[in-house]
């Protein structure tokens, strides 16, 4: 079993772990984290695809860089919405909150 295959399978494992967390966890924050783990899984798959040749294939590497920025943006937006939602709700009931 080559190193690349191990990384590929690990990527798949990360994806599935994240998927499990996304479905099972009830807290929205944990769901967002689970999505990030899934992201990492896909990135790992892409990076191992790049590592199949020497020097590595730059196209999947660039895809990962792009993917990271997309994931950061989505995560940031989700977190912003998450932070805003409860505070607004509490504001309605409790002026001191």
């Amino acid at each position: 079993m080559s190193t690349v295959a191990i990384y590929l399978l690990t990527g798949g494992l990360l994806f599935v772990i994240g998927l499990h967390g996304l479905i099972v966890r009830r807290s929205l924050l944990r769901k967002i984290l689970a999505l990030n783990i899934m992201d990492s899984g896909v990135f790992m798959v892409l990076l191992s695809l790049a590592a199949r040749s020497d020097p590595p294939d730059p196209v999947p590497q660039a895809m990962v860089l792009t993917g990271i920025v997309v994931a950061v943006s989505a995560t940031a937006l989700a977190l912003v919405l998450l932070v805003i939602a409860p505070s607004r709700y509490t504001d309605e009931h409790d002026p001191n909150a």
Partner: peptide, 27 residues
């Protein structure tokens, strides 16, 4: 905002499935 977060999570899951498939196709 709650509806928006749920909408976002569902959509992100959908995008991620798509992205994994793209990786498989490239592989």
């Amino acid at each position: 905002i709650r509806a928006a977060i749920r909408y976002l999570l569902m959509n992100l899951l959908g995008s991620l499935c798509f992205l994994l498939a793209v990786a498989l196709m490239y592989g």
